Computed example of a mutant assay.
Amino acid sequence: MFDMGDLKQGIVFLPDRMKKSLMGFGNTAAKDLQGKAQSNRPWTDRTGHARQRLKGYCTESEDGLRIYLAHGVDYGVKLEFGYEKRYAIIYPTLRKCGPEIMAGCRKILRGR
C-alpha cells in the first residue's frame, strides 16, 4: 500500500518549487550571459568600465521570469547601435545563448 499523503503534499507545493527552480536557472543563465558578454566583447578596453558594467540579471514578472543583459554605462547604446554595430555584444550574445536558455526552461517546465 502506498502512502499518498506525501504525494499530495508534494503536488500542492509544485508551483512554488517550479518557480524556485526557474528563478535559480534564470539567475544562473543571466550570470552566464554576463560572463560570456564580458569575455567576448568586440571592443578594446580603455578604462574597463563598459566591460565591468555589463550586467546579467533575472527578475520575476507577471507573466513569468525575465532574463536581462544590459550595459551600465551611458555610452552602451552607442556601442550597441553605433559604429555600424561592430561593437555590439548584447544581441549577438542573446542570439547565441538564447536557444540553450529556452531549452533549459522547457526542461524544467517538463519536470526533467
Rank of each mutant, 00 (worst) to 15 (best):
Y87G: 00
Y87S: 03
G5S: 15
K96V: 00
E80F: 08
Y75C: 09
Y87R: 07
L109M: 15
Q34T: 03
M102E: 15
A50M: 08
R86I: 09
P99N: 09
G76E: 06
C58H: 05
F25C: 05
E100L: 06
R106T: 08
A50P: 00
L7M: 12
G72M: 08
R41N: 08
G82D: 12
S61C: 04
Y91I: 05
N40T: 02
E80I: 06
F13L: 11
F25N: 08
D63C: 02
A103W: 11
G111V: 11
E84Q: 14
G10P: 04
R46T: 11
M1C: 00
T93W: 07
A88G: 06
C58G: 06
R17V: 09
G24T: 14
P42F: 11
G56C: 04
K55G: 02
G98V: 10
L94E: 07
D6Y: 04
D32Q: 11
Y57S: 07
R53K: 12
G64I: 09
L22F: 04
G5A: 15
L94W: 08
M23R: 08
Y91M: 01
D32V: 00
N27V: 06
G82N: 12
D16Y: 05
K31V: 03
G111Y: 09
T93Q: 10
G64Q: 11
Y68I: 04
A103N: 14
R110V: 01
K85T: 15
A37K: 02
F81A: 07
P15C: 06
R66D: 12
G5K: 14
A50R: 04
Y87D: 10
S21W: 08
V12A: 14
V77Y: 10
G24R: 12
F13D: 12
D16M: 07
K55P: 07
M4V: 11
N40K: 07
K55W: 05
R17E: 14
I11Y: 06
S61F: 03
L7C: 05
L69T: 03
E62Q: 14
L79C: 01
R46Y: 13
Y68P: 01
A70H: 10
E84C: 05
I90M: 12
M23H: 00
A88K: 08
Y91P: 05
P99S: 10
F81R: 07
R41D: 00
D45E: 15
G98Y: 07
N40M: 03
R46M: 04
K96L: 12
K55M: 11
G48P: 11
K36E: 13
L109I: 14
I67K: 01
R95Y: 04
F2A: 03
K20Y: 03
E62N: 15
K19T: 11
K85D: 13
R106P: 00
K8V: 13
A50Q: 00
K78M: 13
Y68R: 06
K31E: 06
T47N: 10
A37H: 01
R17W: 10
F13W: 02
L79H: 03
K85I: 08
D3I: 06
A88V: 06
M18V: 15
M23W: 06
W43E: 12
K78F: 15
D63T: 13
Q9I: 00
Y91H: 02
G64P: 10
A50G: 03
